[in-house]
Amino acid sequence: MSSTAATDALTPPRGAQAIYRVNPVAKLAAALALSLLLLVTIDAVSAAVALVLESVLFFWAGLGPRAFFRRTAAIWIAAPLAGVTTLLYGVSAGQSYLQFGLLHVSDGSIALALATVLRILAIGLPAVVLFATIDPTDLADGLAQVWRLPSRFVLGALAGMRLLGLFFDDWRQLELARRARGLGDTGRLRRFANQAFALLVLSIRRGSKLATAMEARGFGGDTVRTWARPSPFGVKEWLLITLGVVIGVVALAAAVVTGSFNFVIG
C-alpha cells in the first residue's frame, strides 16, 4: 500500500457507468441491508442463492474483471480460512471423521464450513464492490444532505480522512528514521509500537492545525451551511436499495423453504 493508493481511495476516478452516479449513501444502505439480512442465518442455501443473484449484478459494478479480483482478493483468501477454522472447531454433528482435543471434524462441521465460506463471500463481495466506487466527498455530502447527519461531524471526518495519504508517507518516513537511529535491529512488535506512537503524535498535531484552519474558514459557526455540491437521491438510489433488500429476502426465503434456515443465535 502506498500513499498513492490511499489518494486513489480518497479521490477515485468518476466513471461513466451508472453505478458511479448512484448516491453513495444508497450504496451504503444497500450493502448494510443485504449484510444484515444475510447475517441472520448460517446455511449454505441462503448464501449460495444470494451469491448467484449478486454475481449477475457484479457486471454493472463499474469494475473490470481485473479490478474486481484485485479488490476482492482478500475476501477470497479470508473466506476459506474461516471455513477451515469452522471445519476444525465448528459445532459437530453426525458422522465424526477426526477428533483431537477441541478439534473435531464431522458431517456437521463440514456443512457449517461450507456455509461459512459462502456466507462470507455473499456478504463481503457486494460490500467491497459497492465501496470501490464510493468517493468519500460524495459520501459525506450524502450523509449530511440526505441522511441529515450533523454536518460538523461528517465534514470533520472527511477532512481528517484527507490526511490519510500524508500518514502513509509519515509511516514510511518513521520506518526509515528508526533504521537510521539504530533501532532497526530490535523486535518488530516494539518498533511497531514506537512508530504507532509517533504517528499518533504527528497526526494529533496536524489535526489541531487543521481544526484551526477550518475554523478560520468559518467552519463550526452558527450560520446555516450551504452545500456547493448537490447530493441527489431519487429513483436509481431506491432501486439499488430495493435490489439489496430483495436479494437478501429471496435468499432467506429459499433457506426457509428448503428447511435449511439456521438462526445464527442458538
Binding site: F153, G156, A157, A159, G160, S203, G207, A211
Partner: peptide
C-alpha cells in the same frame, strides 16, 4: 471533532 477524526 477534527482531532477525534484524525485519531480515528
Amino acid at each position: 471533532i477534527v482531532v477525534a477524526s484524525v485519531v480515528g
